[in-house]
Nucleic acid binder design. Structure first.
Lengths: 191, 191
DNA sequence: GTCTATATAATGATAGAC
DNA sequence: GTCTATCATTATATAGAC
């Protein structure tokens, strides 16, 4: 495959990713994606031969991105607690997008479950990656027995914050809850 | 309008409600709803002339149901704390549905926001009703200043639990989190 | 009130020219 | 690689017979 083709392929994935996030998966048509990158529908099918294909590519890209981000955090921040704080801060860093469109992974999982979609497990595997990584961080913090429980709790708290901030379009609520989440982290890690 | 017509209208609303919950709003067609109540598509249009109409009817019915439920709780349970516990227990009472399909209101809000749908505000108003009612309960418990904050926090916790329980199809997680939510309620209300 | 057509638009997907 | 048809299917919605 040529270099130009690869670049276009990446652009298509990026455009589809964004559109799935903003408008939802089912509500996004091939025309929408093709228009976003200024190609014809026919050309689109040269790169992805079905809607399953493009969704799978988007999910793979997201999984890779998350994996790369977590690995980068492992090298950048030596303290597990600092890493968890960075995880929590995803909400504030992306606060505009979160209030407008919710959590990219959570909202897609919700949709795919309702569609009984084949790629459902591929979507939840991104959650599983976060969960696994958070469990490791809590474990390193000495919470050997409760590590997984704390990880899932934190995951759920983040989803709840994103859902309500999105439904009410309320960024202040998001900020308030992030603060309370960090207080929770302090309480949980000091002993 | 005749009595039979009214009854059928209610049956259509109930069927649409269930299908929207199980498969999502956009993914549910008129044929799906018509089939569920064994009528033709043409007859369907006699009762609801657009998809907006049936969605609006479903949302109105849900709002009425929630309002009736909360009013019933007000008379059944004299203590505000007991009422809040009953609110939390919605998750365990409907645990099978929640793990299979998520929160009926939350997942619909998520979808309608992405569709930029007109009925979006009608959907969030159900959240707002819960939020208003919970605020009143916390206020009666003496949390005059933090009542609204606690109400929104509880709302978000519930959404997070439903989202993760749904994504991972994990009822045990739901039960665990409900317990931790009741402990939180104890901590918050004792002073 | 209930039904059978039918109109119309959009979607996922394919074939084939260049 | 990129494009222009084009097909088959489905969806919302309407018209009109009974």
């Amino acid at each position: 495959m040529g270099q130009k083709g690869d670049a276009l392929r990446q652009r298509i994935i990026a455009a589809a990713d964004q559109l799935f996030y903003e408008q939802g998966y089912e509500n996004t048509s091939f025309s929408d994606i093709a228009n976003a990158v200024n190609i014809s529908r026919g050309n689109f099918y040269f790169y992805f031969k079905s809607k399953n294909d493009i969704l799978s590519a988007v999910l793979s890209a997201r999984l890779d991105d998350v994996r790369a981000m977590l690995e980068e955090w492992e090298t950048l921040y030596p303290a597990p607690k600092l890493r968890i704080i960075h995880y929590i801060d995803i909400l504030t860093t992306n606060q505009s997008n979160v209030t407008k469109h919710g959590c990219p992974i959570g909202s897609l999982c919700t949709e795919l479950v309702k569609l009984s979609h084949d790629m459902q497990s591929q979507a939840t595997s991104i959650f599983a990656l976060f969960c696994h990584w958070l469990t490791a961080q809590f474990f390193q913090l000495g919470q050997k027995r409760n590590a997984r429980r704390l990880a899932m709790h934190l995951l759920a708290r983040g989803q709840g914050i994103a859902s309500i901030a999105n439904a009410f379009n309320d960024a202040k609520f998001l900020q308030r809850e992030v603060k309370s989440l960090k207080i929770w982290l302090d309480e949980v890690t000091q002993d």
